[in-house]
Simulated scan of single mutants.
Amino acid sequence: MLGVWMLYLQLFYSSYRHQIRPKILITRGGGDTIAARCIITNMSPEIIFVQAVFLRLSFADREQLYSLSEADRAGFSPPDRRSELVQGPLRSGDFLELGSFEELLTTVLGKENALHQLAEAHTLTVVTVGSYTWHDRLAAAERSFRLRRNEVQQTILIPTRMTSRQIRSKTEKRAVARMVEKHAGMG
């Protein structure tokens, strides 16, 4: 009888932990080229405060990391101020529409440099970092896209996974926290 109750409590606890975990979804909307929109959605049961969004371009010999939250987004005027700032609170089910991937890359690289860098890069990764209010802890996710050229020389975004990868290990969270501190001038 005690074994049955222990199993029942373990299942209950496991279900409870799963329900309170933060989950951030990073998607592309409106196509599969770099003209598609970058959308960040809070799929958690509680509010997440988005603190930073990074773009990481991977090349054959190096990686470059760019902070969207620190970039000047002049000319981009969405109806939601959070999307312009790339920061702010997201209730459960809320989303930020950050603009097209092309606009994001142009913002951090410049128009001339963006086309050149995209021609050389093989992967684009979007990393979203936030604070999960339930325990005031770090919530982070990333989604990578392979970059390919189609027959009309458009850059196509091919997801490497079906959904965003949630960053949950302590080691990865520490690395993400250092990345945020470095780009915010705190480190």
Rank of each mutant, 00 (worst) to 15 (best):
176 V>M: 10
172 E>P: 01
176 V>C: 07
43 M>A: 15
148 R>K: 15
38 C>T: 10
185 G>R: 02
78 P>R: 06
146 R>Y: 14
82 R>Q: 04
102 E>L: 04
96 L>A: 04
162 M>K: 09
20 I>T: 07
72 D>G: 05
62 R>Q: 15
125 T>S: 15
52 A>N: 15
32 D>L: 13
178 R>G: 04
75 G>M: 03
40 I>N: 01
81 R>P: 11
72 D>N: 12
37 R>E: 12
27 T>W: 00
103 E>L: 13
81 R>I: 15
6 M>C: 11
169 S>K: 04
92 S>C: 11
158 I>P: 02
23 K>L: 03
143 R>I: 00
49 F>Y: 14
178 R>V: 09
67 S>P: 05
4 V>Q: 08
46 E>I: 08
171 T>Q: 10
160 T>S: 10
9 L>P: 02
82 R>C: 08
25 L>Q: 10
132 Y>C: 03
75 G>P: 02
164 S>A: 15
187 G>K: 14
160 T>V: 14
159 P>K: 06
138 L>H: 02
150 N>D: 15
107 T>R: 03
142 E>P: 02
6 M>T: 12
122 H>L: 09
154 Q>M: 08
83 S>N: 10
56 R>A: 09
68 L>K: 00
99 G>T: 01
161 R>F: 00
147 L>A: 04
23 K>N: 05
92 S>W: 03
114 A>T: 12
26 I>S: 00
154 Q>I: 04
